[in-house]
Amino acid sequence: MAVEAAIQPSKLRWGELEEDDGEDLDFLLPPKQVIGPDENGIKKVVEYKFNEEGNKVKITTTTRIRKLANARLSKRAVERRSWSKFGDAVHEDVGSRLTMVSTEEILLERPRAPGTKQEENKVAGDPLAQMGKGGAVLMVCRACGKKGDHWTSKCPYKDLAQPSESFTDRPPSSETTAAATGATKGAYVPPSMRGGGAERVVGTDMRRRNEENSVRVTNLSEDTRESDLHELFRPFGNVSRVYVAVDQKTGMSRGFGFVNFVNREDAERAINKLNGYGYDNLILRVEWAAPRSN
C-alpha cells in the first residue's frame, strides 16, 4: 500500500468554505477508482481521504486477486453463488473475520524415507518404555559397552575398535556404579558431579562425550541418521561413536552430531577432508568438538 499526499489544485477556495463544514469535506474528494484486475490478477484501488491534519491523502491499495479453485461450476452452482445470506450469516459484522486465510504455509509433509522409520518410532515412542529400557542394566553390550540400547549380538559397532582402555580396564566396582547411574540417565546431575574427577560415576553418555578425538559435525540435513554419518566417516579410520542430536519432542534431527575416532590422526584427516564438504544439499562444517567448559 502506498500513501502519498497529493497536492492538487481544488476548485473551491478556502474562503468560500463555511466554518461548520469543517468535518465533512468529503464532497471535495475525487471518486474512488478501481483499476484492474489485469491478466496477472493485480487490482488497484485508488481512494482519497482527509487525514487528521486536514490534508488530502491519496491511498493506493494494490492487491492481487488469486483464484483459489478454478472449478468449473455448474449453472446451479453459479446460481447458488448469488443466494442471499440467511440465519446468523445475515447479521455478520464485517470485523468478525469468521473466514481467514492461514498465515502459515502448510505443506503436505512427506513421510521419512523407508527404513528410517522404525528408528524414529523408537525415539518418539513412549518415554516410559524407553526409561525402562535404559534402566534394564541387564542389557549391556559387551562389544561397545553401551547400556540398554542393544544386545551384544546386535551391536552396530562390533566391527569397530575396542572401546578405550579406561573403559574396559575399569575395576568391576566402578562398572556397577556406572550401571546404576545409567539407570537414571535422564535425571538431573549437579554440575559438581559432571566431568572432572567425578567423570567415572557419571552415565556413559556423559563420559563419552568428553572423550578425546571427538569431532563435531554441524549443518547436517534433517534426514541424516547415525548410520549415514558412520558411513561418511568410516573411511578415515576406526570410529568409536557416532551420535546425531535428536529433538526429544518432535523426533527430528537437530542438525548436528558428534563422531569419535579412535586415533587422533584419523580425526584430523576427517576434519581436513570433510569440512566444507557438500553432503545431502548442505555444506558440512566439521571441527574438533570443543571440550565442555566445566
Binding site: L68, A69, A71, W83, K85, G87, D88, A89, L98, T99
Partner: peptide, 11 residues
C-alpha cells in the same frame, strides 16, 4: 467451498 465465506446457518 471455494473461498470459505459463510452462506448461512440452520437454526
Amino acid at each position: 467451498a471455494d473461498n470459505g465465506e459463510r452462506l448461512g446457518t440452520y437454526r
